[in-house]
């Protein structure tokens, strides 16, 4: 199998790269820079790809590493600002709560529910449910046996449903408590 052109990779995987980076917790205001950086890496290294059939896994790895680098750099920047006595808010470009949209509230809830899953379950769940990969694709990407991927997904769905039920129960208790 031939390594596809950068243009073809960009077209086919732009949404995947974007939503994966976003899902890994890149701030909305940093998304364009981070995604640019990811595609610059893909562009520079595409010809080193040894197995074109594993392109999606390879891209996933690039996204993971790039996001990790971005987060490290951001933490360092914020730590430096504290070290020299500036309040973090002055250099942090995190959106204020008022700037958050209703859709982002969904993401916040989703993140809090996913946080209740352990990492192996969360990854399979996110790849299948959010990135819409097939289970065999997710297994290949995470380099785990297919049966393991299926069992983790089953367990992840149960845990996710339970976490959502707890959240809803808390919400209804809070609303009852607020009544006169």
């Amino acid at each position: 199998m031939k390594v596809p052109s950068f243009a073809a990779v960009y077209r086919q995987y732009f949404d995947f790269v974007w939503s994966t980076a976003r899902r890994f917790g890149v701030e909305p205001d940093a998304m364009e820079d981070v995604v640019q950086e990811i595609f610059a890496v893909i562009h520079a290294k595409l010809d080193t790809l040894e197995n074109p059939e594993a392109l999606r896994s390879w891209i996933y790895g690039v996204v993971r590493r790039s996001v990790s680098t971005h987060r490290r750099a951001r933490r360092t920047r914020m730590a430096s600002s504290v070290a020299v006595g500036y309040p973090v808010e002055l250099v942090s470009d995190t959106p204020t709560p008022l700037e958050q949209t209703e859709t982002n509230a969904d993401l916040k809830l989703l993140r809090s529910l996913l946080a209740e899953l352990d990492e192996p379950k969360r990854e399979v769940f996110a790849l299948v449910e959010l990135d819409e990969l097939s289970v065999p694709e997710a297994a290949q990407l995470l380099e785990i046996p297919l049966n393991t991927a299926y069992s983790r997904l089953r367990a992840a769905r149960l845990a996710f449903a339970a976490a959502l039920a707890r959240h809803q129960a808390r919400g209804s208790r809070d609303s009852r408590g607020g009544e006169p």
Binding site: W18, S19, M31, L109, L110
Partner: peptide
């Protein structure tokens, strides 16, 4: 439904 809305929010 939550997942569908989240998918939409994650897209550029």
């Amino acid at each position: 439904e939550l997942i569908e809305r989240s998918r939409a929010a994650l897209r550029p």
